[in-house]
Write a protein that binds this DNA or RNA. Structure first.
Lengths: 339, 339
DNA sequence: CTGAAAGCGCTAACAG
DNA sequence: CTGTTAGCGCTTTCAG
């Protein structure tokens, strides 16, 4: 059986395609009676409208894109969850693109969006992304876009973030309260604004507690698991850190791995806090103290913002900002009690 | 600046739109010279083809759909990863749909695909899905579709699975080898063929070791975390199980939670094996013995199969089957040594 | 309230 | 090698 089109319905009902179209779209200028007849036949013939014809004509795709570095990370997985929940509710489709931290891939993906493939985009940029070189500034003007979590500072655009500096400050203070004198922060990027904010919170907390901030206070880790493992082991041995703040989920587990390899006891030899949404954090050995980001809510908020913009073209999307706080969950990988 | 179309290029170059189109598609019937001129202008004007116009005309969308129960599960996250890696390579776009284990949602989503929105679909069905009631049989005939992991037995269709029965058999044997006499399997569904296969392997292993298989040997758990927690606690207390096989990731952590609540020591009071792809399995307390499914490879294989079918219409997709083995990773939540 | 006609941007015959 | 023409399926003026 070939595809049922609006024209087939029109012929069978002796109506024009225009009338059918309007009836299907519940236009007020169609009589209740014809609407019913059209709907009935459509149901009977199992009519499903061709989205591409409609998109071509309306210049709207009812589709949004989600562009993220990876999906095998509970933050992003939960964020997608949040995004999808609102997209489904609004009847939108969601395209997903993974950049694998490659700036080039990201650029290629974003470039494609100028085609009108999507009505809007939600993005969390790569560790390599420097807004300047990018067509990003341009794109923001051309298509509704909201950044979440990994945003670009330099750009004026809608952003959903969490309180990175504050969270890092809290984490650091917690470490210090547990007796830590030589904390180190593991960072995933020198460019990312969220990394820099976390660094800033960290630095501030050190300063406020008269602890030195040196070149050894931050370790920049690559996306390469093995290299990171080696780097960590060497650094921990050399610098005798007594506390670590891992700013990504992968880095947190890398620390556990390195500690095991070096026969260091967490938390006694080394306290650990991870920025992580791992549901298993409390079952780790020892259970991991985390800064838990509101991943699901951030996804939801980002999507909600985008849809607001899609609904009313007068909505000043690029001006929008929202910060959703993270929470410090104290467990056994650190020594200080809750305050 | 409005969108650049093929016609604008045609006018500027004094060529027909047909020629432009062919040149852009690198048709052999266009001279090298004109191709260059066209490409040059296209690049200059930053021309990006309208995918919907092209899809409408070609009746092909260069898009596939991935339909899964949820994304916040490392199996599915990794599977998406695998799928996306081959889709990106082939220049396809991927739409993602979450069913949240709702059969109704799944049905609505699949129904929409009759519109031609996607060229093919990859699906892992919900726990509720019973193929019969579904338009599934129908859909298989209408659109290239490959099932992965959670497949429908009753249907003839392309399927990528793992060796569920064998894996469960191995897991059970391992438990028994560690001294377990009263093992129980936690199942997520009565309908799912993968659940039934796991049950089958479990039952077989019990039989082969002269252990009884009773009504208490299997517990069917819902998707509701809290209810599951209560159910588990009660059942463990009542039946005095000494070993548990959790057939999903969530169930595995639920067991850890229940054991903690009941002050049971894993593995001494209760041995645990989880079907899980958690990267943190080895850091759990105690580290979790797992049946690890080849999630990434299953996703890749499923996508590869689909693209093969999309490339050659003569490819007998529904006949294809592939089984990729899982591996038993022995850790500290069970007692038997590796053999 | 319904219909005729035009066209979204692209591609596929078919001529030349 | 290039152009003409038609049309994918739908929506939108504009008339009636």
């Amino acid at each position: 059986m070939e595809n049922v089109t609006i024209r087939m319905l029109a012929e069978r009902l002796q109506l024009s395609t225009a009338t059918i179209s309007k009836a299907l779209n519940n236009s007020h200028e169609i009589s209740e009676e014809t609407k019913q007849r059209v709907l009935a036949l459509a149901a009977e013939l199992n009519y499903v409208p061709n989205p591409y014809a409609s998109s071509l004509r309306k210049k709207a795709s009812n589709t949004i894109a989600v562009v993220i570095p990876e999906v095998a990370d509970s933050f992003f997985a939960e964020a997608i969850n949040g995004i999808e929940s609102v997209a489904q509710e609004k009847g939108y489709h969601v395209l997903i693109y993974l950049t694998h931290e490659s700036f080039q891939k990201e650029q290629a993906i974003l470039r494609d969006f100028q085609s009108g493939r999507v009505d809007g985009v939600l993005i969390s940029v790569t560790t390599e992304t420097a807004a300047a070189q990018h067509g990003l500034e341009q794109l923001v003007k051309e298509i509704p876009i909201v950044f979440f979590d990994r945003v670009c500072e330099e750009i004026t655009a809608a952003k959903i973030t969490t309180d990175d500096a504050t969270a890092a400050y809290k984490a650091t203070t917690h470490l210090i309260a547990g007796g830590c004198r030589q904390p180190v922060m593991l960072s995933a990027s020198r460019h990312l604004s969220i990394s820099n904010k976390r660094t800033e919170g960290f630095r501030q907390a050190l300063a406020d507690h008269q602890l030195p901030f040196t070149a050894a206070s931050i370790i920049y880790c690559s996306n390469d698991t093995i290299a990171t493992h080696e780097l960590l082991k060497k650094a921990i041995q050399k610098e005798h850190y007594d506390g670590i703040i891992a700013t990504t989920e992968k880095l947190a587990t890398a620390v556990y791995e390195a500690a095991a390899a070096l026969h260091l006891q967490i938390p006694h030899d080394l306290q650990v806090i991870g920025f992580s949404n791992l549901s298993t954090a409390k079952f780790l050995n020892p259970s991991l103290t985390t800064i838990t980001q509101p991943a699901f809510d951030m996804g939801k908020a980002a999507a909600a913002l985008l849809f607001k913009a899609l609904k009313s073209s007068s909505f000043a999307l690029p001006e929008q900002q929202e910060v959703i706080p993270s929470t410090l969950l104290i467990r056994n990988s650190t020594l200080a009690a809750a305050d």
